[in-house]
Each structure stands twice: as C-alpha cells, then as structure tokens.
C-alpha cells in the first residue's frame, strides 16, 4: 500500500480547481478517479474498477449504515471533513457492535474547489480508513455548479460484520442498567463553532473526533453484556439519551456533576448561551449495560486512551414523567428535554 502523508504531491496538476467536467464522465473525471481516488484508497475490491464492489463477508449478519457530511469549515482544529466522513460512519457501525470492514464514498464537489483542498481531504480519508482498518471499496463523484454546494459534501456508507448473538440497541436496555460515558463532552461542537464564527479563546480547543472502533472491539471481546451504545453526535448527550429512553419506553436519570466538561467548553458555552449537554461530539459515546458489569466495563474504558476519562453518569429507571431526568449538582431534578430545533446562541 502506498504511504500517504500531508506532503504527498498533488497528483493532478492540469487544473488547479475542480471543473464541472471533473464530474462529466469524460477524460477529466477518469483522471480524477484514477489519479486521486484510486491512488489514495488503493485496495483489491476498488481495483476491480466495476460499477460496484463485490465483497466476501466472513459473517451471516452485517451492520449497514450511511451518513452524509456537510461540515463547514472543511478543516477544523482536530480534524477535517475527510477524517470525519470515515470515523463518523465507522463509529456508527461500532455502536451496533460490528467490526467495520468496508466503506463507500460519494463526493459532491462544488465547481471551483481547489484541487489541492480535495487532495488534502482525500489523503485524510485514506489515512483515517487505514487507521480504522476499513477499505473504501466503491464511490461516486458529482460536480455541481458554483454556488450550488458548500465546497464539498461527502457521503459514506459502511458495512461491518457482527458476531453471532450480538443484539445491541435501545430496545435492549433494562431498568437498573448503568450508563457510562467515555470522556468529556462538547469539544467538537465548540471547536467547529469557534472556527466558523471566528471566535477566539485563550485555550486552543480541538475537536474530539476519533475512531471509536478499536475501543469498542476491546469491549466486544470482553463479552460484557452490553445492551446499547450510542455515539453522541448532533444534538449531543441530551438528544442521544432522549432517543434511547423514548425507544425503550423507560426513563434515564443522569447526574450532571458526573459529566466531564472541559473548562474551555464550559466557558465558551457560558459566553454563547449554549448548553454542553446538547453540543455535538465526534469521539464520545455512551454504553448502557447491567449495573453489575459497570465496573469491569469502566476498567476497560479507562485503560484505553479514548476512555481515560470514562465515568458512570447515571442509570435506567422505570418510566417516569419524562424520558430523561437530570439530577443537578444540588441533588435537584429537572427534565432534560429534546431541543425544539437547532441549539441557538442565547442573548437571554
């Protein structure tokens, strides 16, 4: 496999920017696919150069997921749209308890995007895919008119394999289960917002974007009876808990003072009038499993770099007045609801 790094020279020098013709099916598109995508993602399945990839899967059951990435800016502290498009989909497979194996990649490119930008993104995807142990086996390229896209959108779909007997999902959670979280929340959303809005903080804040699959595979190998896992992407911890509790028809109770939040994130949220419980993450997830298995699970999490700060944040109760209840640092209860829409900075 070719070794890629940020210094790899851009393989297409004819045009410094993407043209509509790069998606037009002719020689330029061929060049783009051959010199950029195939070079970066090089693997036997892709090299069949067919309309689709044919895969031999070592399992009866597979997990399948898809996600589209429209993040702006394309590059942010701690990551970029390319690594996010790989890790995001890999993490969704991992949350099903699956071992991620294959990805597809669909690129919707706005005419005029610098070729160098696309190359940086593709290299980053290639690097991320290798780290996550997945192959990008088929893809698609479309170019849209200038002004009809936001530079670059990426869709990835992923296939992972499940060991027999694994049933992980919100309907599996039970009254009395413990809820664990692998680290501090809110860094991704605040890092993106700070970059997007040109906000400057004294402390440099990086996205928590990470490949969670390795850590999840360790958990799966431990044979702990995990009932549910969920990565805390859009809508943050509060939304994920609400979705799970509503699906399970149970109530989740969490303790606010157990939830780690970096001082920089707390400060930024305070200034902007945001609540870190609703801010997006890209490398944080919760695990719901029986109370008696919480401690061994925490030990595994804490021994891994992506779980060093892992904590227990709450438990599952029988259905109460609301899907999610928050115990404030003063031992008082309040409902932790879904947001009506996007979280907006408050003046009031």
């Amino acid at each position: 496999m070719t070794d890629f790094n940020q210094s790899c020279p851009i393989p297409i020098a004819d045009y410094p920017h993407i043209l509509l013709a790069h998606g037009g099916g002719g020689r330029l598109m061929n060049q783009l696919i051959e010199r950029m995508f195939r070079k970066a993602f090089d693997n036997p399945e892709l090299n069949h150069c067919h309309d689709g990839a044919c895969l031999d899967l070592p399992a009866q059951r597979i997990a399948l997921t898809t996600d589209s990435y429209v993040v702006h800016p394309l590059f942010f502290p701690g990551g970029d749209i390319g690594s996010m498009a790989v890790y995001g989909t890999v993490n969704d497979l991992a949350m099903c308890g699956a071992l991620p194996l294959y990805l597809t990649a669909g690129f919707i490119i706005e005419e005029g995007l610098p070729m160098e930008t696309l190359w940086r993104v593709v290299q980053s995807m290639s690097h991320a895919a290798r780290e996550a142990g997945v192959s990008v086996v088929t893809g698609d390229t479309k170019v849209v008119n200038h002004g009809k896209g936001d530079g670059l959108f990426i869709n990835t779909a992923g296939v992972g394999v499940l060991k027999p007997g694994i049933e992980i999902g919100p309907r599996q959670i039970r009254e009395g289960d413990a809820i664990l979280l692998n680290g501090d929340i809110g860094s991704h959303g605040i890092a993106i917002m700070a970059r997007r809005e040109g906000l400057e903080f004294e402390t440099a804040l990086e996205s928590d974007l990470a490949n969670l699959s390795g850590l999840v595979q360790e958990l799966m190998e431990s044979h702990l009876p995990i009932h549910c896992m969920r990565d805390l992407t859009r809508g943050g911890l509060a939304s994920a808990l609400n979705e799970i509790a509503s699906t399970a028809d149970l109530t989740i109770e969490i303790h606010e003072n157990q939830i780690p939040v970096k001082a920089a994130v707390r400060g930024a949220c305070g200034l902007l009038g945001l609540d870190p419980l609703y801010v997006a993450n890209e490398g944080r997830f919760i695990i719901i499993l029986p109370e008696e298995d919480a401690e061994p699970c925490l030990s595994i999490l804490q021994a891994h770099p992506l779980g060093a700060q892992a904590v227990r944040i709450g438990s599952v109760r029988k259905k109460g007045t609301a899907p999610v209840e928050l115990v404030t640092p003063f031992g008082l209860h309040r409902i932790l609801d879904l947001l009506s829409g996007e979280q907006l900075p408050r003046i009031c």
């Binding site: 404030t328 640092p329 003063f330 008082l332 209860h333 309040r334 009031c348």
Partner: peptide
C-alpha cells in the same frame, strides 16, 4: 430577568 429564570429552572432552585 430571564437569565435568573433560566438559572432557577436549569438548577431546579425552586425545589429548595
């Protein structure tokens, strides 16, 4: 002030 109301509801202070 709405900011005070936010704090009261956010922390559940009325329960005290």
């Amino acid at each position: 002030c709405g900011g005070q109301t936010h704090s009261i509801v956010r922390y559940g202070l009325d329960q005290l």
